[in-house]
Design a protein around this nucleic acid. Sequence first.
DNA 1: ACGTTTCAGTGTTACGTATAACGTGACCCG
DNA 2: CGGGTCACGTTATACGTAACACTGAAACGT
Lengths: 382, 382
Amino acid sequence: MTEQGAAADDTGTPDTATRGTATPGTGTHAPAGTDRATHQAAADAPRVTSKDVARAAGVSQAAVSLVLGDKWRGRVSTAKADAVRTAARELGYRPNLAARSLRLGRTRTALLVVPALTTEFFARVYTGAARIAADTGFGLVLYPSPEGIGPARDPFDSARATLDGVIASSMAADALTALYGEGLPLVMLDSDPHSTPAAATVNLDIAHGARLAAHHLLDLGHRRLTHLAAAVDSWTFHLRARALADTVAAVSGATLAVQAAPLSVDAGLHAAHAALTAPGPRPTALVCDDDLLAAGACKAARRLGLRVPEDVSVTGFDDLALATAVEPELTTVRLPAEEFGAAGMRALIDVLAGRPPAAPTTLPVELVTRGSTAPPPAEPRP
Amino acid sequence: MTEQGAAADDTGTPDTATRGTATPGTGTHAPAGTDRATHQAAADAPRVTSKDVARAAGVSQAAVSLVLGDKWRGRVSTAKADAVRTAARELGYRPNLAARSLRLGRTRTALLVVPALTTEFFARVYTGAARIAADTGFGLVLYPSPEGIGPARDPFDSARATLDGVIASSMAADALTALYGEGLPLVMLDSDPHSTPAAATVNLDIAHGARLAAHHLLDLGHRRLTHLAAAVDSWTFHLRARALADTVAAVSGATLAVQAAPLSVDAGLHAAHAALTAPGPRPTALVCDDDLLAAGACKAARRLGLRVPEDVSVTGFDDLALATAVEPELTTVRLPAEEFGAAGMRALIDVLAGRPPAAPTTLPVELVTRGSTAPPPAEPRP
DNA sequence: ACGTTTCAGTGTTACGTATAACGTGACCCG
DNA sequence: CGGGTCACGTTATACGTAACACTGAAACGT
């Protein structure tokens, strides 16, 4: 599968193999097979160590460490401290993170476990977490789901040695079993606080979002709703289902059916088709667990000759870019994805610093009303 | 672990600080409330080192390193090698990556530089690269764009010390200036092979994709096309523009206008509106630089009372999830995003291993014909 | 004048790994 | 039978950093 690009060679690529690359000293005559010695790809970097800085500044290495570590108050004179700092700057000194990690036993690196990164939602969660990680000098590495990553080794093999802590989405709960008991500080995103032994928890106010969506539709006059539910066994989706059911049940005469589907446009299409063609009175509103399902639902409705929102209303969840790309634009529950990730990272940093983690945070969500919802069609009176 | 209170040795220091060990200065009278010292969140992990394995297996630490590093042929007996391996397994030994990196001067970690991760395309690129990184025991860290990451320090401050190599999208060219000259092996994704000094290059056959889209529309009979061009100064978009212009120019009587827009649904909407309402004969086809622009273009067309594809055809680029979420589904150029990232990672690993990088790869693209393109409306004959 | 505290530093060590350098016997060959 | 090779290991570093333990002075209080 390596040589893939043989097809479509009409590009007229320069076929001359004479590549004027750098790579000096490639032995042209000797094939040599594989050089056992490291072939010196690009190791011309004269590494600058703290000892070099010390020599340049006329102090000891220990003083350099003190000054650069900002622990020199009353230990090093201001003059020498300045000398150290200018020397470090002029030499372009960068501390060797491997050595520091070895010494300190900490790596300032965290792991973010998400079910899948291609999901725009989790890409945004990552972005938010990475932003504040970068601001605080942390690294953030990703573990984007067991099925996405292929048959790799246990990704936590090296975790204990490499990571200071973990932030995990409850949607990746299967991966968590591998972590459990590893003794790593763990921050959970959107998980049942009673079931998971986490050092801290950050939640989105999912139940409130579901209630907002339900109330919106009920207020418009809808009485027959169907919940296009994610076929994912996860806390956040259980919450949505329950909040939806409770809200609908509170309004007399309203019913809530449920149709499960994996999280994709296509699955949404099929599930909505099933819901809209099921025997009995047709639902007038479809409440979907995310925007992909909602987009699929809109397609299904139109294929059945139904107009959105005149004949059937649709709501989504997440407010992805997709929500405004489809027509009509989706009424959806906006989740603060970046802030979600950022809050998770902040909580982890607190835990690592030994600060008592802030009380379990719950981030507010909001209903964005767009064109995919409207009052139900006039009921045919029998 | 010296016996502290044994006797007054040569120093003759009085017992002013008899407990020179942990927690200095804990006043016995103080209730102590919250210890300022590290609060010991979860540090009960009894780290297993190669020395522990050595002791358990009855060999020296060096032998453990040899065996586990698979360099023991003719140096250690099979029996002892087995003993080492079982001891390592039973103790749950995990090599300390920080120590290894310090010793070796390599980290087995690469950096992927992308313009933005929220873009589904680059999320997929990352996924592909991460998959093969995991398979080969590499780490992969992300640098998701200067504007996305906030006012962090130069992310390459620690790069030289932490990274073995870099994979960079040409769309993040501004970030590359910081890298240039750092001496890190660099693999470029989709860049002009003549302009960038990279150790290896992996390209998508973008020009071919653009030609496919243009030919598709020209074959359907379109003669007035407008290119909704990304307002991004990047090699890949220059390529699209040129290939499009060349292909259209080759068909007599066909014209190509250009309308620039940032890469978003909204920008596509506005740009398409401008293109469709510009003075002169209306274009019958809009060729968009990505699917977001195409989705916006569809919205603009419909708001002007034009049907897609009957009145105006639209093509996209990338084949994102969005392409099948909108209606009509988008005719688009599918780019093998995961394979793109994977090829980049493979190339970098080759470079790092000292193997001559495979010839500049060009990955094939393909046109996916869906519902957003059709023959142009019958021309009103004056 | 004398102990004591503070200032301003330096010497040294350990973190855990990989490998070069250094022995051992045992065996083989001339 | 002596030297040389081989098979099998061990000892001893070095990587770069942070922090502990210590040391001269100078300042300070009485």
